[in-house]
Simulated scan of single mutants.
Amino acid sequence: MELADKAVGLVLSLISLSIFTYYTFWVIILPFVDSDHFIHKYFLPKEYALIIPIFAGVSLLSFLSMFIGYVMQKSKRKSA
């Protein structure tokens, strides 16, 4: 099982690194490249550079809030 855990960790690390690299290039470097350059066809429009992280953050906070509420309700039932 230890080998499977390492493989999953490696895959998740590679996915995270690729997303970070893509987003960094998209937000920081791409605005300095001419708009008619071919590289622009591989990236989403600039508006999504804000929409995607905001949506992800709101989703994460919502999930964490629901999880914490669930755990608090469950612990309240056990103590009562």
Rank of each mutant, 00 (worst) to 15 (best):
F55E: 11
I51F: 12
F32W: 08
Y48P: 02
A56E: 10
F43R: 02
I39P: 01
L61P: 00
A4N: 06
T21L: 11
F25D: 01
L61N: 00
S79G: 08
V33Y: 04
M1Y: 10
S65L: 14
L30P: 01
V8K: 11
L17E: 05
I68G: 01
P45N: 09
R77A: 15
P45M: 04
S16H: 03
K78C: 00
L14Y: 07
S18D: 03
D34G: 12
A4C: 06
Y48N: 05
I51H: 09
S16N: 00
L30T: 03
I52A: 01
A49W: 00
V71M: 07
S62L: 09
L17T: 10
L50H: 13
F55V: 15
P31S: 00
K78P: 00
T24F: 14
I39T: 02
K6M: 12
G57R: 02
F67D: 13
V58A: 10
D5R: 12
K78I: 13
P31I: 03
M1K: 12
T24P: 06
S35D: 15
V71I: 14
L44S: 08
P31W: 00
F63D: 06
Y22R: 00
V33R: 01
I52Y: 07
V11T: 10
T21A: 13
I29L: 09
I39Y: 00
G57Q: 03
I68A: 09
S16W: 00
S16I: 02
S35K: 14
D36N: 14
S62E: 05
Y23W: 10
W26F: 10
I68V: 15
D5L: 15
P31C: 02
S79D: 12
D36W: 15
S59L: 10
Y70A: 08
G57A: 07
I28K: 11
K46H: 05
V27R: 11
W26N: 07
F32R: 08
L61C: 00
W26Q: 04
E2M: 11
V11G: 02
D36M: 13
R77Q: 13
M72P: 04
I54P: 03
V58I: 10
I51E: 09
I28Q: 12
S79N: 14
F55A: 15
S62H: 06
V11E: 06
I52S: 04
